[in-house]
Design a protein around this nucleic acid. Structure first.
Length: 577
RNA sequence: GCGCCCGUAGCUCAAUGGAUAGAGCAACGGCCUUCUAAGCCGUUGGUUGCAGGUUCGAUUCCUGCCGGGCGUACCA
């Protein structure tokens, strides 16, 4: 409906221009949904925006346009309001065609025409050095819903998880697993502060021991050398180096075992959370393919690399970053940043029209250097959009909970899912705008889960399904759509419900454009509200024949939109509750 | 110190530069002999952190303060 009204408005303005009543150079008219109910279904502030260019008072200009609009079956009336708004009131009859349209499209209703835009969406990409925690859960829920919304809006979306399987943190995991493995074999030791202390490390160690027996045992004193005056990080690196030397080629078995176990856990966790990926992209594979060297060579050829202190630096300051960044360390090992340059180069070379990275907000300082590197490589940085997901601050018993992978003191996504359920967790996450700091009260989410707004929406869907079950049981039948007289739907509740249904495709479009799946969550809640109000105000089964069929058609349409909207959020639409 | 994000009802959060700033929860008062009361109807609740500026119009944009989060590695 919005497009129809927009077209009418544009036509009226064009006619005035052609007739010489308006200059040709005017701002583009915008049509919005007013907040205030009395302001109609659509509103434009065009007279306000164009008043200066036209040289006429806004309300006078509004009257001119109102006169040029003429009559349309879609519009009941057009009002001039406030300082010069034009408010459009859509005729109820114009909206009734929507119901059979929704029923015909069913689960595909809301899918917008395909756009020829290919988007690569990367999200979560948590290091596989521990289970996903509730902070990752937010990124997962947001990224996945965004992917679904974009796909629904017609974009071609590829979803990717970048696996950081090559860095130092994975070596620390390997060391941690090995120490627990030695413990499992009966060795007593003091577990280092810098290691990963979570219980999952012990689980991996036990599984490892079952698989390889004692073959990875080495004298502890060879590895767990004492600190001396070394700082903890240097000590950890020294221990890793010794472990690598002691295990030789077997180190890869250890490293690979820990990685595989963690990755399997993460993959399984996300899958159970309804989050799916098209590709798991390995940093190590990138390294082994020589892609990093190629990317660095390209920067070098462009004069953007230099050597200092034995390390290779990228001239990030030339591209707006606050300092230059190391890409190859003094010890000749490339940095994570070097990998990421190569990874993003690869993304560009794969021919996408748009790249979206969903990052935790703690990585925000990383954006300028990545954008800088892309510019240096001769790529268009504006093709990459980095979306930051703010931290979820956890409260347990009114006290802020710590989130540390190292100490193992964190609430895992798996625990959250088990305690509050996938549907509630996903809805809760996506109800907040991603860049908004979020307080996650675990006690509230757990103990009052039945008051979670997700049930409000699901209940609306289940209620409709229940009505349809009774229709079947009583042998009433749903009637023939072609025979229906939809003009019988004339109560305020019906009018409100139809108007909300009419907004659905606009919500998809807006949510996709703004990368804001929370808009869908708010919409679906509002739709549920309309459904509940309707349900309480009017009878379906006992309505007279004729009226009954059109009412059933209306709630049938509402049911599809509820289910489709929930689907975009990765939330189920149950038949019963 | 510098950079990024944020500050809206008691709490959790919405609001493409628009009109009287909205929901949910909590609180209070009503509604089940009828399709699921996880529901509906109503009431209460605000100097949009503070001070300026831009303009027809600011929660939104700009500047400065105040408060919170994050970052400021040859970690990822």
């Amino acid at each position: 409906m919005k497009q129809r009204i927009a077209a009418l408005l544009q036509e009226a303005i064009t006619n005035l221009v052609v007739a010489g009543h308006l200059p040709a150079d005017l701002p583009t008219p915008e049509l919005t949904r007013p907040r205030q109910e009395g302001h109609g279904d659509f509103s434009t502030n065009f007279p306000l925006m164009a008043a200066k260019a036209v040289g006429r008072a806004p309300r006078i200009l509004a009257a001119d346009i109102q006169g040029a609009l003429g009559h349309s079956p879609w519009i009941e009336r057009v009002e001039i309001a406030g300082p010069g708004f034009l408010n459009f009131f859509v005729a109820d009859s114009a909206l009734l065609g929507l119901i059979p349209e929704i029923l015909a499209a069913g689960k595909h209703y809301g899918e917008l025409p395909r756009k020829s835009t290919k988007i690569l969406l990367e999200f979560v990409s948590a290091n596989p050095n521990g289970p996903l925690h509730v902070g990752h859960g937010r990124g997962a829920a947001y990224g996945d819903s965004l992917g679904r919304v974009l796909a629904c809006a017609g974009y071609e979306v590829q979803r990717e998880y970048y696996v950081n399987d090559a860095g130092r943190q994975m070596d620390i995991l390997a060391l941690s697993v090995w120490l627990r493995y030695m413990e499992a074999a009966g060795t007593t030791l003091v577990f280092p502060e810098t290691g990963y202390r979570g219980a999952y490390v012990q689980d991996i160690a036990h599984a490892l021991r079952e698989k390889v027996g004692d073959t990875l045992q080495r004298p502890l004193s060879d590895i767990l050398i004492e600190a001396g005056d070394q700082d903890p990080d240097a000590l950890t690196d020294a221990r890793i180096a010794r472990l690598k030397a002691a295990l030789g080629t077997q180190y890869q078995d250890l490293h690979g075992f820990g990685l595989k176990a963690m990755l399997a856990d993460i993959e399984d966790d996300l899958k159970a959370f309804g989050v799916h990926y098209d590709r798991w992209y390995s940093e190590r594979a990138l390294l082994e393919s020589g892609a990093i060297e190629r990317a660095l060579d390209r920067l070098r050829a462009h004069g953007d690399l230099y050597e200092e202190g034995g390390a290779q630096w990228f001239r990030a300051t030339h591209y707006g970053d606050e300092k230059d960044r190391v890409v190859v360390r003094e010890n000749q090992v490339t940095t994570y940043f070097a990998s990421d340059i190569a990874y993003h180069l690869d993304k560009y070379e794969r021919g996408f029209d748009g790249l979206i990275d969903v990052w935790g907000a703690d990585h925000h300082g990383y954006i300028p250097r990545v954008m800088g590197a892309l510019t240096a490589l001769g790529l268009k940085p504006e093709q990459l959009q980095v979306l930051l997901v703010q931290f979820a601050i956890l409260y347990r018993g009114g006290v802020r909970a710590q989130m540390s992978t190292r100490s193992g003191d964190f609430v895992t996504l798996r625990e959250l899912r088990a305690e509050v359920g996938n549907d509630a967790a996903r809805f809760f996450y996506v109800l907040r705008k991603s860049e908004q700091h979020m307080d996650f009260d675990l006690d509230l989410a757990k103990s009052q889960s039945s008051e979670n707004p997700v049930y409000y929406v699901q209940y609306a869907h289940a209620r409709i399904m229940s009505v349809f079950r009774q229709v079947e049981e009583r042998g009433l039948g749903r009637g023939d759509l072609a025979q229906c007289d939809f003009t019988l739907l004339n109560t305020p509740e019906e009018s409100a419900l139809i108007r909300t249904l009419d907004r659905y495709t606009e919500v998809i479009e807006d949510a996709a454009a703004a990368r804001e799946p929370h808009q869908v969550a708010y919409y679906v809640r509002e739709l549920a509200s309309n459904v509940h109000a309707y349900y309480n105000a009017h009878a379906f089964l006992s309505a007279p024949t004729g009226l009954r069929e059109v009412r059933l058609a209306l709630i049938g349409a509402a049911r599809h939109v509820l289910a489709n909207g929930l689907g975009l959020l990765g939330v189920s639409a149950p038949e019963t509750m």
